[in-house]
Computed example of a mutant assay.
Amino acid sequence: MLELRPCCECCGTDLPPASAEARICSYECTFCAACADGVLQGRCPNCTGELVRRPVRPAEKLLKHPASTVRKVKPAGCAAA
């Protein structure tokens, strides 16, 4: 099950579970659309995998399977990628 991480690893932008702006790789590294499409050019800086739109979990399912609250942000941001 996807963790639905709460923020962009590069810039720290909040990405709530229903956000259409969240992008993930196959390892669930999470980025906002601006970072994914911009500086990262559609590639995960951690594994070089493709970044795709994260699916949205229906609100009623979030009650049983809540999103993660653990924030993972690179100290140097996307520039360090």
Rank of each mutant, 00 (worst) to 15 (best):
C10S: 15
E50Y: 06
A67K: 01
D37A: 13
F31W: 10
A34P: 00
D37H: 11
V70W: 06
E60A: 13
L62D: 01
N46W: 08
E3C: 10
A18S: 12
P55Y: 05
E3N: 12
G49A: 13
G38N: 06
L51D: 00
G42L: 10
Q41W: 05
E28W: 04
C32S: 04
R53D: 08
A34Y: 01
R53E: 12
A59H: 09
E9L: 13
P66D: 03
G49L: 03
C78A: 15
Y27W: 15
M1V: 10
A18T: 09
G38C: 07
C29I: 02
T30E: 01
K61V: 11
Q41H: 14
C29H: 15
V73S: 03
V39D: 01
P75E: 10
A34F: 02
T48S: 13
E3Y: 15
P6D: 05
A59G: 04
G12K: 03
E60Y: 14
T30D: 01
S26T: 11
R5C: 07
E50H: 12
H65Y: 14
C78M: 08
C47H: 09
D37F: 06
A34D: 09
R54N: 02
L62K: 02
T69P: 00
Y27R: 15
A36W: 00
D37E: 15
C7H: 03
A33Q: 11
A67I: 01
P55M: 10
V52I: 14
T69G: 09
A79N: 08
A76S: 12
G42T: 05
E60W: 14
A34I: 07
G38A: 02
A34H: 04
P16F: 07
G49W: 02
L15S: 04
L4D: 07
H65E: 11
Q41R: 15
R54A: 08
E9N: 08
V73G: 04
Y27L: 15
Y27C: 13
E3Q: 13
A80I: 11
E60R: 14
P45A: 11
P55H: 08
P75M: 10
G38K: 03
E9H: 07
A67G: 06
A79T: 11
C11N: 06
P6C: 07
P45Q: 07
